[in-house]
Amino acid sequence: MKKAEIITEMIAKAGYSKRAFAEKVGIPPTTLQSMLTRGVGKASIDNVIKVCKGLGLSIDELERRANENQSLAEVYYSCKQVPVLGSIAVGEAILAEEYIERYEYVPEHVNVDFCLRIKGDSMIGARILDGDIVCIRRQLDLENGEIGAVIINGEEATFKRFYKLNDSIILRSENPHYQDFIFSKEDMCAVKILGKAMYFISNVR
Rank of each mutant, 00 (worst) to 15 (best):
Q139L: 07
Q139T: 03
D141H: 04
D141W: 00
L142Y: 02
L142K: 03
L142C: 09
L142P: 06
N144T: 03
N144H: 05
N144C: 11
G145L: 07
G145K: 05
G145A: 13
G145Q: 02
E146Y: 02
E146N: 06
E146R: 04
E146W: 00
I147M: 10
I147V: 15
I147R: 07
G148V: 03
G148W: 00
G148E: 00
A149W: 02
A149G: 10
A149F: 00
V150S: 04
I151Y: 07
I152N: 10
N153Q: 09
N153K: 07
N153F: 00
G154I: 00
E155L: 12
E155T: 04
E155N: 12
E155F: 05
E156L: 15
A157Y: 02
A157E: 02
A157H: 04
T158C: 09
F159V: 12
F159Y: 00
F159L: 15
K160E: 07
K160M: 12
R161H: 08
R161L: 07
F162K: 00
Y163A: 15
Y163E: 07
Y163T: 09
Y163C: 13
K164F: 01
K164T: 07
L165I: 14
L165C: 14
L165A: 14
L165G: 10
N166S: 15
N166A: 15
N166Q: 15
D167L: 08
D167V: 03
S168W: 00
S168V: 12
S168F: 05
I169R: 03
I169Y: 02
I169E: 00
I170G: 11
L171C: 10
L171W: 00
L171Y: 03
